[in-house]
Design a protein around this nucleic acid. Structure first.
Lengths: 342, 342
DNA sequence: TTGTAGGCGTTATCAG
DNA sequence: CTGATAACGCCTACAA
């Protein structure tokens, strides 16, 4: 069954294409009778405007691109959901691409979206992103662009972020408040701004509490995996048996550490208290349940799309859009892994 | 920075649009000199063909639609990854839509994809799908279509599935083999074929082992959540304290049950053994680790896209495509929740 | 070897 | 109130 066109409807009714088009769009200058005839036939023939032609004329596709490091990830899949739902509400579709934490792939995906001529791009950088030529090129091409979560501070686009330093400070302060004296940090890779900021929050909070910072207590993940959590917990115990608190870059890593501690009968939190970050669902099903920082992933998706929409609309209206930075709140979630028995 | 067009290149070089187009596509009937001039300038001006125009001419968008019940779901996010990666390899982009387990929304999403004129549609049905008019309409419109995981048997499209009945039988047989005599089943909702099949596998396996089937031992999830797992574990213990095995429709539910059992100091597996389904990552971090059936989600995404690609290609070539059903293998994963101590 | 013309389906402008 | 015409940008048969 081939799709119907305006031309066919016009031919059947013996009127011009122009009139059909206008009738369907309820132009005031078409007679009620003609309108009805056209609409009825269109309905009957299941007419829908050919979006390829509409795209060509209007120069917009009502489609945006979303580039994220990985789809299979509690945080990102929630962001995706937020973006898709908000886009849907506003009549936009979403093309999703993965960078697999590789700069090279990320650059390729940006190219693909250029060629596809999406109306806007949302992106969270890969851990590997230490170059931003491709990000600049999004801006020079004048494509609406919003960064979220893992961003490049140097690129003057809109951004949706949390205050990683502050959130991380809250986490570490909480460990100190429950009595931890020697806190290790399992941090993320070198590049991502959020790994840097969480590390800084950790360091500054120690200093603020007159606890000397010791770089030997900082362990650096390459891939931010469960397995790394396990491995570093082991190393921490071996190298610093007197550590009494661990703050991990994200829940997945914290859960790896927790598994190791549990299996080796290290009492959590009484011997070692544990803080994660991001509030993954999984943290709630552990024993003990994992304390963490709630990061509003779903809301971040919504906010990112909303900002993008603003920019798309303002460009369409011919206005100049001034990038905005939206900072979302985080929340300390206290659970069993930091509630001492005593 | 506005995108370059063939026209502009032609104007600058003082030649015709046709020649520019041909030069870029390496037509044999363009002089080497002209080709070089055109290509150099195109390169310099960052020319990429306007995909809207190409779509209109070629009547294809190299974009497919993927409709799934929910994005934030271990199984589906792995499917998404498989689809995206395989699509990417073949030069296709993927638009993702959620049905949120609602038939109505699912129908709407199908409409959206019609309007968008995607080259093909991949879909896993919502639990709510008891009507298939919209699925038939995909076929009547002649749009390549592949169903996966939660499918409608009645719709003659290609499909990618596992043998749910057989897989579930394997799971239940395993419980029986380790000595379970009274096995409860937490099943999925009424509609989805896979919930039905897993239930049938359970029932038939009991009968095959001369264990009487008791419908009171079957608990039905509405939303297939962690919370339902908790709730039904409680009910099972209350109503049937002598149950010694539980088989849950999926890991998330099994993990809910496990949490309840752990918190109430019911020995797993010694008092009650536990089987999940799907092999969610989370199952590996529980104590005890969850036994389950591995369901190849990522491979399912790849297989689904591959089937769709075949169909899209065969249609383009004007051939008749005969729907195929691909059945992927599952695997019993034995972990702590079914390894008795003794 | 290069160019002209027509069309993909829609929409906007302008004339009747 | 209706319609002819051009244009969006690209591609391709055909002509020169």
């Amino acid at each position: 069954m081939k799709a119907t066109t305006l031309k066919e409807i016009a031919a059947i009714l013996g009127i011009s294409i122009t009139t059909v088009s206008k009738a369907l769009k309820d132009y005031p200058d078409v007679s009620a009778k003609t309108k009805k005839a056209v609409k009825d036939l269109a309905e009957q023939l299941n007419f829908t405007p050919n979006s390829f032609a509409v795209n060509l004329r209007t120069k917009e596709s009502r489609t945006i691109g979303l580039i994220i490091p990985e789809v299979v990830h509690h945080f990102f899949s929630n962001v995706i959901r937020g973006v898709i739902e908000e886009a849907d509400k506003n009549g936009y579709l979403v093309i999703i691409l993965q960078s697999n934490e590789s700069l090279e792939l990320e650059q390729k995906q940006v190219e693909l979206l250029f060629n596809k001529r999406v109306d806007g791009i949302l992106m969270s950088l890969s851990n590997d992103s230490n170059d931003d030529y491709h990000l600049k090129s999004i801006l020079t091409r004048g494509i609406p662009f919003v960064q979220f979560d893992k961003i490049s501070k140097l690129i003057p686009s809109s951004k949706v972020v949390i205050n990683d330093q502050k959130a991380s400070a809250t986490a570490v302060q909480h460990l100190i408040d429950i009595g931890c004296k020697k806190i290790a940090h399992i941090r993320g890779p070198e590049n991502p701004q959020n790994a840097i900021d969480r590390f800084l929050g950790y360091k500054k909070t120690l200093e603020k509490n007159a606890i000397p910072f010791d770089s030997k207590l900082v362990y650096t993940c390459q891939n931010v995996t469960y397995e790394e959590g396990v491995k570093f917990a082991e190393e921490i115990l071996r190298d610093h048996p007197d550590v009494d608190g661990i703050f991990a870059i994200t829940d997945l890593v914290a859960i790896g550490a927790l598994s190791y501690l549990n299996e080796n009968h290290i009492a959590v939190p009484d011997q070692i208290a544990l803080m994660g970050f991001s509030n993954w669902f999984m943290g709630q099903v552990m024993a003990p349940k994992l304390s963490t920082i709630d990061q509003p992933s779903y809301d971040m998706g919504i906010a990112a799309f909303s900002l993008l929409l603003e920019e798309m609309n303002s460009r369409k209206a011919g206005g100049v859009f001034i990038p905005r930075i939206v900072e979302l709140d985080t929340e300390l979630i206290v659970r069993g892994s930091t509630i001492k028995k005593q």
